[in-house]
Design a protein around this nucleic acid. Sequence first.
DNA 1: AAACACCTTAACCGTTTGGTTAATACAAAA
DNA 2: TTTTGTATTAACCAAACGGTTAAGGTGTTT
Lengths: 212, 212
Amino acid sequence: MDNKKELKIDDNQDKSTERLIFQAAKDVFHRKGLAGARMQEIADEAGINKAMLHYYFRTKEKLFEAIFNEECSGFFAKLAELINVDLPLLDKIEFFVENYIDLLMKNSYIPVFIISEMHHNPERIKDLFIDRIVSVKHKFLGDITTAVSLGLIRPIDPRQLIVNIMALCIFPIAARPMLTFMMEMDDNEYTEFIELRKKEVSKFIINSIKIN
Amino acid sequence: MDNKKELKIDDNQDKSTERLIFQAAKDVFHRKGLAGARMQEIADEAGINKAMLHYYFRTKEKLFEAIFNEECSGFFAKLAELINVDLPLLDKIEFFVENYIDLLMKNSYIPVFIISEMHHNPERIKDLFIDRIVSVKHKFLGDITTAVSLGLIRPIDPRQLIVNIMALCIFPIAARPMLTFMMEMDDNEYTEFIELRKKEVSKFIINSIKIN
DNA sequence: AAACACCTTAACCGTTTGGTTAATACAAAA
DNA sequence: TTTTGTATTAACCAAACGGTTAAGGTGTTT
């Protein structure tokens, strides 16, 4: 056939190897962390030769950094979306909590991954944070300050409130193994428990800061 | 001198080498995690020969387990102390939060250590938890249920309340690097921030559950 | 068809790793 | 004094590790 070329199905899978590596590396790094991950295991999971890892990403460290950056960026981008929604503060908190917990459950490995790797190497994230998360936080911080001065919520240090909100959303996902043992839950009970939190947490927060 | 033996100064330092190893291993495992820690680094930090590690604790895994168990046990023991104190629920929460945050700050590496290592190997802790933390939790859970049925606090799933309390205490210590970047705090500001939380968190919780 | 650029592989390499061994020091027991 | 059990060390080892190399494959350009 002389029209073989034309008949070829969509070609934009060219980078499939790189993507294969990236996805496999993600999974392995999530499970084992930077230090615990093995290049061979990543290669096996991607179904390709180990040398390819070094062809596309020069070193283990660089491969890890590529993933860590992408994960953080994507995650903080979604975080910003949630915070920038235009709602009165109390509604915004409700909206945020519900969707943030949802987002965390769909990426349940990310909290431990970030907390753990930042603990082992706090410097890594510095550049990532500047201008990305700080600006988002400033907006939220301003919202709270305004609400306090308008008497919509009781006086509270905005930083403490933000940390409280994050803590209530993130901790139960990060500490899942501890919680399931402690509360003697199986996987289904845990999922249901988190599902209930979507309403419970925002009620808990709003109850605490609203002025009756 | 024929009374040499009698004159010898207190002998109970015999296990000093084992303790030296144990302490050094603690520090290194806390910093690097199980996978990231190197036996040579532990030996260097203890100031002894690497072979001694294997003499006292057969393998890296066994050394790690010894430390992980001791850390968890000691930590949960103190946790139980705090929960078993005899006070009305709201006072108990206030007492607990203040002292728990204090305890966490004095062992600030433990939350990430436990969360991270449980994530990488959830099975490890199973035996540790049974009978230790579960019984403690049962008491607290009972206290809350009673308080709800007596109308002292608003109706709330006791499990959710416990998780909320733990989250508000543990998360800011576990996620320290993230918080300090986000809030643009230095070490002193962070310490002060946590110090303020001791009052703020219990106020936050009690505000949310008390019946006016 | 030759030249070129990119992808892929098997085999290899130097180093680091957890772990072992054989020899030694040393104090208490016999 | 000899024996015995414990503590300690330097030297060593096999396996695993991250990373390299040299060669070949494949489609595109000239």
